[in-house]
Design a protein around this nucleic acid. Sequence first.
DNA 1: TAGTGGTCTAGACCACATT
DNA 2: ATGTGGTCTAGACCACTAC
Lengths: 246, 246
Amino acid sequence: MTLVDPVLQRSSPVPLYFQVAQHLEAAIERGDLRVGDRLENEVTLSERWGLSRPTVRQAIGDLVDKGLLVRTRGVGTQVVRRRVQRQVQLTSLFEDLRSSGQQPTTSVLVLERAPADDEIAEHLGLPSGSEVVHIERVRRARGVPLAVLRNWLPVTVAGSIERAALEEHGLYECLRTVGAHVHSAQQRIGARAASAAEARLLEVRRGAPLLTMERSASDDRARPVEWGSHVYDARAYSFTVNLQSG
Amino acid sequence: MTLVDPVLQRSSPVPLYFQVAQHLEAAIERGDLRVGDRLENEVTLSERWGLSRPTVRQAIGDLVDKGLLVRTRGVGTQVVRRRVQRQVQLTSLFEDLRSSGQQPTTSVLVLERAPADDEIAEHLGLPSGSEVVHIERVRRARGVPLAVLRNWLPVTVAGSIERAALEEHGLYECLRTVGAHVHSAQQRIGARAASAAEARLLEVRRGAPLLTMERSASDDRARPVEWGSHVYDARAYSFTVNLQSG
DNA sequence: TAGTGGTCTAGACCACATT
DNA sequence: ATGTGGTCTAGACCACTAC
């Protein structure tokens, strides 16, 4: 037995199944349970830990959903991955530089209220011509521009966002501090040649390959929160997408 | 009450919670339940349908995971989306043409066994120089080439794949018929300028923007199944990525 | 205060994979 | 034949939201 029993706190507000899931996830992360290892069966675990089987099952089920475990009827439960993978990650020179201690920067070109044109209004589910917050930013590393980020948000959501916050933190971080929680987003990733204006902003030649991303984001009541249209220098950025059971 | 009761078949091998989930999903899809509508509470539903509350809860939970419903404690369960969204979808001229009745084609340039170079061997978790299956295909619509798809697979997985199958069906479809089930995949999406060779194959000018995708796929025991490196004409393809609770 | 979902129990029987 | 996960029941109490 390499798996230590969890220390369960029944008085804690943290649900028991969650405590168990955290314990198992930590054991996998630490390497106590390795890829390919089998867990003991659910009945044995629940008896040893003094829990009902459904409670243990819920914990295991959560880790299955996270992609760390697989259950096979008649066989058992096995570890298949050591770490949780994020669904989508923008792997960028910008983040690499930040984590390696260098200081990339974000400068805000535009932060204004303006009437929405038809396309923006449609994306945000607002009447055409409604006032919206329009943000335009440039990301630079060592002074070299790498990305141009353009966003439009309902005034009700982003009316109080400040320029200084946007230069220090990501947009979603700013939205959280204002109480807007993004629940789901749809992104469209493509590529195209740089227009003259984009080439000027990004200091690349006209026609250079750019990675593009358009995004619609909504809160948990399906209300539109943000629409964005971003372009990235293709040499500096790529997207990583992780899929399961496809 | 706009929601019709489900017809439950207790003798069916289909689980009750799944029958309920299908019934709710169909009602949402049909529009009987619209975005914003609230379900009756779980206790009432389970009593009316002659099921235990956990069974009804599991059905609702599955649709929450699919992103169709949201549950809020003290409030209730609401519809937030009408259709299930696929996690990642390659939206392409190719698929558009197929669904509009036109006939796009896939031609197999290469289907061979060859020793893996270091990079391929690493991606497939094999010793360097191991024999692998190497596939190279071109996708065309109306005779115009739109994508070049290059894949490498372990011989144990793809040893019996045939040229004709690859010209008729997608790679993953072929893998399923051979008993290889892809469980998870990691994709890296980027952009770059077309090399001379790529420009020739895709009939674009050298330096034209291409959308690129590299993919590692594994089965449910975390064994590598496939590694692929694809390039797409950026005018014809884009990726759609759907995120939740991010 | 009333009503909702969130958590938990202690069983039961079944389907499937392995031996 | 055995052991595993898959499904299901009939309750219980709690935490949160809205009024």
